[in-house]
Amino acid sequence: MEAIKFSYNVPGDDFTRAGDASTDLKSKLKKMGVTGAPLRNISISLYEGEINLAIHAGGGEITALVYPDKVELYLDDNGPGIADISLALQEGYSSATEEIRSLGFGAGMGLPNMKKYADEFYIESEVGKGTHIKMVVNL
């Protein structure tokens, strides 16, 4: 089955624009008839990932593949990578600075949240190379 594809670039230097992609995908999915829990699960997990690209990775790329029965979300960056993935996945772990906290983020809840709201969650990361995340939400 052919998927409908949406691609977004997330800037690393303009925090006010972080969330543009998630907002846009949400309204597109709504128009395609996606509603309820799946729509919210996609929205929250993608938004958390998008914020992470903006604040931790210096920006990155988002790709969404929409199938009749599921949505696949890919978050790819060439940022600093994550040295200890199991630590980063723990609730409350954050390397965020005071400045990021003053913007309302940095509680260490993003990755755990993505794992919780997505039906499938995969993460690969290499220090100095970047981070790649795939999430699947069933419709």
């Binding site: 969330g19 998630s22 949400k26 919210r40 913007l103």
Partner: peptide, 17 residues
Amino acid sequence: LTGLNNPQVIRTADMMD
């Protein structure tokens, strides 16, 4: 209800319906 003022407040509200 929030004392934070940046566009992420509205985006968060939107994501949460």
